[in-house]
Design a protein around this nucleic acid. Sequence first.
DNA 1: CTGTCTTTGTGACCAGGTCCTAAGATGTTG
DNA 2: CAACATCTTAGGACCTGGTCACAAAGACAG
Lengths: 190, 190
Amino acid sequence: MARSKAKEERQQRLRALLEDDPFMTDEDLASKLHVSVQTIRLDRMELSIPELRERTKHLAETTYAQIRSVSGGEVIGELTDIVLEKSGSSILVTSDEMGFKKTGIVRGHHVFAQGNSLAIALIDAPVALTARAEVKFIKPVFVGDRVFAKAVVQSGSGDRCKVAVESRVGDNVVFVGEFVVVGLEETPHP
Amino acid sequence: MARSKAKEERQQRLRALLEDDPFMTDEDLASKLHVSVQTIRLDRMELSIPELRERTKHLAETTYAQIRSVSGGEVIGELTDIVLEKSGSSILVTSDEMGFKKTGIVRGHHVFAQGNSLAIALIDAPVALTARAEVKFIKPVFVGDRVFAKAVVQSGSGDRCKVAVESRVGDNVVFVGEFVVVGLEETPHP
DNA sequence: CTGTCTTTGTGACCAGGTCCTAAGATGTTG
DNA sequence: CAACATCTTAGGACCTGGTCACAAAGACAG
C-alpha cells in the first residue's frame, strides 16, 4: 500500500464522475482522469462498478419499473381493495429513491401521491381530477416503510366528491388528507 | 404490396413486444416471431425503432433526468432563484410519464411535488419536513407544459414556516398552495 | 415465366467492453 | 544497492449486439 494515495483519490473522483454522469465510457473517464483506459477498468473492478452498458441497463430497468409505479402508473402504490364511490385502500412500499438521502425520510409528495391517486381511483367517471386538497403529514415516513392508505368518500355528489384519506405505517397514522375530486365526462383540452 | 399482410402483422407484434419489454435483443425477437434476425433488423429499420442499446440508453437518460427531478432529486423541477427564508422559484418541464395516458393531464402530485420541494428548499435548516399543506388545483396542467412555481415565506419563525406557492403555466395560475414546513436540527429516527 | 417483393444468409466492421499476459514505472525495505 | 511489491500501461484474443452492403433463394401476381 505504498503510493496508493493517488489511486484512492482517483477512484474517489471516478466514483464522483459516474455519480453525476453514469453514461461515460471508460475512454471518457480515462481522458478526464489522465490515466489509461486499462487503469479505469482496473479501478472499476476494484470498486465493483459495472461497465457502461450494465450501468445504463440497470438504470433503465429500475427506473422503468419506477416510472411505471411511481410516476407512470395510474395508481401510486398497489390497490388492495376498492368500492367505487365508496372506499378503497392501497399499499405503498417506499424505496430509496423516494427519500432524502441524508435522512432516509420519504419525501412528502410520495405519500401525497398515494393518497391523491387513491382518491382519484375511487371516482366513477371517465376522467377525474383533484381540485383541492388539505393534508397533514403527522409523522415522518422512512424509506422501507410500507404505507397503508385508506380512503373513504365523504360526500359523493357524482361529479364532485370529498374523499378522506388516512395513511398508516404499522399502527401509526402518518398522514391524513381531504381531497376534493371532480369527475369529468369529457377531456378538457389546452 | 402483395403478401405484405403477414409482414405488417409481424411488425405490429414486434412493436407490441418492445412496448412491454424494450430490453429484448433482435435475437429474442427473432425467436419469438419465428423469423430470422435479419428480418427483425429490417423491420426495425422500417419502423425506425433503434437498436437495443439506443433504446435502453434513451430510456435510462430520460428516466435518469426523471429520477433526479421527479423522484430522486432534492428538488422537483429546476430552481431558478432562491433567497433562503424569503422566496424562490422553480420551473418544471412536464413530460409524458407525468400525465394520464388518456387525457395528457399531468397528475396533481407532480405539481404538488414541485411546490412542496420548493417550499422545503426555502428553509434554512439541516432537515426540513412538510407538516401541513392546503392546495388548490385551479386548472389542469398538460403534458409538455412548463410550470413556473413561485414560493414566498409568509411567517418565518425559524423552525416553523408558512410558505405560499403559486404555480403558473404561461399567464394562467394552475395551482396555489400553502405549506407549513418545519425545520429540524437533528434527524428523527424510526 | 418473368418481375417484384420479401426473407434469409454471409462477410466485414464497430463500440465498448471482458480476460489474460507481460512489460515498465515507482516505490519501500533488507 | 539490489530485490521485491505495487501500480500502471500496453497488447492481443474474444464477446455481444449491433451496423452496412451484397447476394441469393422463395413466394406470388400479372
